[in-house]
């Protein structure tokens, strides 16, 4: 055996669930927010990984390899979700006046309130939970665009290709996602404490 071969990583499918199950599930849940879907994606990923085990070259660790397969599954899930005809009519409450003299200005009950500095510093953990919860409420197409662009740093071009949307559409979806997230965090975190 050469030195190079000795340093290569190997696979042990019998230990995947035990050793990487929770890690893979945490990743999936951080991207999908729906427990059952996240579980199923982990299962599908491990089965696909097993079927593709001959393609593993050992250049990366077993875990990195499994995560790369799961990432692909997550993107496939986003794609399916956002191509669902229902997502064409995703409800979205625009927080601005439409038409008239006040066109494009904030509707007062949806406008940003000031966020309490003290709460901000003391309850960071809670804020993270609220944020994740609010991300899970985004409509499928918005969620997919937002996660791919913000959490996975996928290029605009690739996102548009995967989701079948135009670039201007992508920016509109990101804008809406941010408007909705901000308002959701404010309502769930500052006002309900």
């Amino acid at each position: 055996m050469t030195t190079e071969e000795k340093h290569k990583h190997s696979l042990d499918p019998t230990r995947w669930v035990k050793e990487h199950g929770d890690y893979l599930f945490s990743y999936a849940l951080s991207r999908i927010s729906k427990k059952e879907v996240a579980e199923d994606l982990v299962q599908e990923s491990l089965l696909s990984a097993y079927q593709a085990r001959d393609k593993f070259r050992g250049g990366s660790s077993e875990r990195t390899w499994l995560i790369s397969i799961l990432k692909r599954k997550v993107i496939d899930y986003y794609r399916k979700q956002s191509r669902n005809p229902e997502s064409l009519t995703d409800p979205f409450m625009i927080p601005f006046h439409q038409g008239g003299a006040a066109d494009g200005t904030w509707i007062s009950e949806h406008a940003p309130a000031s966020w309490d500095e003290e709460i901000l510093q003391d309850d960071e953990g809670v804020l993270m939970e609220v944020l994740q919860y609010c991300i899970s409420l985004l409509a499928p197409k918005m969620a997919a665009t937002f996660s791919m662009k913000t959490l996975d740093d996928i290029s605009t071009e690739d996102i548009c290709k995967e989701l079948g949307i135009s670039e201007s559409n992508l920016w509109v979806l990101l804008h809406r996602a941010r408007l909705q997230l901000r308002e959701c965090v404010e309502n769930k975190w500052f006002k309900e404490l």
Partner: peptide, 27 residues
Amino acid sequence: RSFNEQNAILSEKIETLKHDSPPAELS
């Protein structure tokens, strides 16, 4: 201006979320 500040706070928190997925356990 408030939206601008709050959006920046959210971006910062999302950055944390990106690198450390909160630990969860498969049932």
